Structure formats: structure tokens, C-alpha cells
Amino acid sequence: MSRRSPKALVPTDRPTRLPHVEFDATAVRFLGDAVDPEVFPPSEAELWHTCDGSRPLGSWDPADRERIARWHSAGLVVAVPAPRAAPARALTFLSPHPDDAQLALGSTVFRFGGRVVDVFSDETWTRRPYYRERPALASRMLIEEERVSCRVLGAGLTLLGHLDGESRPAWRDGFLLGPAPTVDVRRAEPELFERIVLDLARELADASLVLVPLAVGGHVDHVMTREAVFELVARGAVAAGRIAFYEDMPYALFGDARADAARLAAAWGGAALTPVLVPGSDLSAEVKREALWPYRLQVMEPITNRIVRYGRGLASTDGTGGAGGFAERVWAPAESVAAVRELAACAP
């Protein structure tokens, strides 16, 4: 029950409890397993409930700060950074499921703020046997994880509530379509596709820059989210100059984002997509890692570590930050490349 790479709590951090803790008459449980009473005796439940993200660590007395720091090291709470000024730019991050936008662009979400829109937010898939046996609880936990992560990053959250692909009959034989999907997701589920198009038309009615999944790996929900945005551009509801694509994680760790970007460019209209690195920092990398910790039902810590290393590798390869730098890559069509480069150049 400890993180291999925990950040140290600082007095301005606002400790926020994770939703996976349960209390019964004799024990405290986390992810369904009993917690060592030396780490979390039931008598400390009242202190636990005060960790709601509203108070800086420095507002507790020294003994309570020590207890909360112990919980943080054990992975039972996360650190929400001190509030920052409202961002000057409006960004919308389309996330096929809870966790996708944060896995791919957590540093960018933290640095610029904005809103995460989860499309297929009704899901129950998990690696954890305790939650697999309790799908209703798993569904609730996955959404609560998303709320905590957005709180860490300082982002707004909208849940569209569509059912994820694993649970839909059309994909009972497999929802990973591969790097070059041959299945037309529009024709496979036409009514669902149209509902998503209409939902996104409403959510994308402002003038914000929209970050859309590239669909590396071919997960049907990522493909459908991307295709719904294509449809909105075709209908004239969203300007092409507002759209850029992010590398889906962890699929990009094992796939070929550059090849997927080339295939997408052909579908977009033939012009190559331009890769743009959005710089981060040691702080934004640390906050991204912190924001990924709440996803205990699906995301394993080794994957988080690989994603952070990937971001450091991007910065190092590009020469933007050396060994201590961090970056996330987006792919921009010709219509939006200037706007995306401007965004990257003024990363706060």
C-alpha cells in the first residue's frame, strides 16, 4: 500500500481522499482489502472525512498533518495543488472514457485548465476482482475516480453517460479494431452515433480549441468519438481550425502514433498532420502523475510511470527540456496548426 514514486505533500496542497475507502464495524477497507490498522485505525475516520480538497495541509495541527502524510504515502489520499488563476484560454478535452484525456494530456490540462468531456462514461470494466463482482459499485467508482482526477488538475467535467463499447452488443466479438479499422462504426451503430454527434454539437458550441483522440490502437469508442467530430466538421457545426488530435495512452506506448496520424490525415483530406509538442515542466509531470493515481480500477502504476517517461523522452528528443523536461504531443491539421503552435509557445 505504498506508491513507488510518491510526491511529498507541501503545506499548500489540499489533501483529497480517494473514493475506494469503505468502513465496516471492525475494519477500514481500501479496494476491498483490509487496511493495516497501524496505517489507518478506524478511530481516524473523522479526520479522514475532513480530507475533501477544501483545506490546505497547513491548516491542520502537526499531528494530523503527519497522519494525512502517512495516508498520502500509502496512496489513500492525493494532493490537489493550490488554486490558480483562471486560464486565459478555453480548452475542451474530449475523453472517450474517464481517464483517457488525463492519461494523454494531464500536463496540458493542468497547465491550461479547461473542461474534460467524457463520452462513454457508463462503464464497469476493471482489473480488480472485488469490483468485477460488484458492477454497480465499479461504475460509481470509475466516475468518482474521474472527479478526483479533474480536481487535481483543476479541470471542469461533463459526463455524457453513453455505454462503453465492451458492454454494447455490436462489439461482443472485440472492441479493439486495430490500427487500420475496417469496421465502419457509423453504420454499425447509427442511432448511437447520431446521439453522440448531437451531444457533442451542444458541448462544442463555444469557441474553444478541442483536443480529440487520434484513436491510436483502434478502440471503438475512441474511433467513434473522433468520427463524431469529423461529422460535426462536415456539417459545419465545428470549424476545422478548432480541432487537434492527441496520442491515446497507453496505446501510443505500444503502437505507432505517426502511422495513425498519416492514416488520419488521408481521411481528413490529404494534408499531413503536424506534430506539435506542448511543453510541460517537472511540476506539471508530477501533477499529472498525481492525477493518474486515483484510477485504481483500471490504471496500474507501471503504466503511469511509462507514460511519464514517454513525456520526458519527447521533451528530450525535441531538445525542448533536456533530461528534466516534459512534453505531450498533439497532431494538428493545417487549419489549426497555427493555433496549436501558439498554445504550445505560451504554455504557462
Rank of each mutant, 00 (worst) to 15 (best):
S95F: 13
R84E: 14
E144A: 15
R151Q: 15
A104Q: 08
V117Q: 05
S121E: 09
P135A: 04
S149I: 15
A74K: 00
A138I: 08
V152K: 02
L153E: 14
L94T: 05
P81N: 11
A85N: 14
P62K: 12
M141C: 07
T108E: 03
L142E: 08
A63G: 04
T124R: 10
F93R: 05
E133T: 04
P87V: 12
H97R: 02
D100A: 11
W60A: 07
E144G: 08
P87L: 14
V152T: 03
R65P: 06
C150R: 08
V116Q: 09
R134A: 05
R128D: 15
R111H: 06
Q102L: 03
L103T: 12
R115Q: 11
A86S: 13
F120L: 09
Y130K: 11
R89E: 15
E123C: 11
S149D: 14
T92Y: 07
I68S: 02
L153F: 10
E144L: 15
L137Y: 00
R147W: 05
I143V: 15
H72Q: 14
P81D: 10
A88G: 14
H72K: 10
G75T: 06
R151P: 02
F110Y: 15
R84I: 09
G75E: 01
G58K: 10
P87S: 15
D100V: 07
H97M: 03
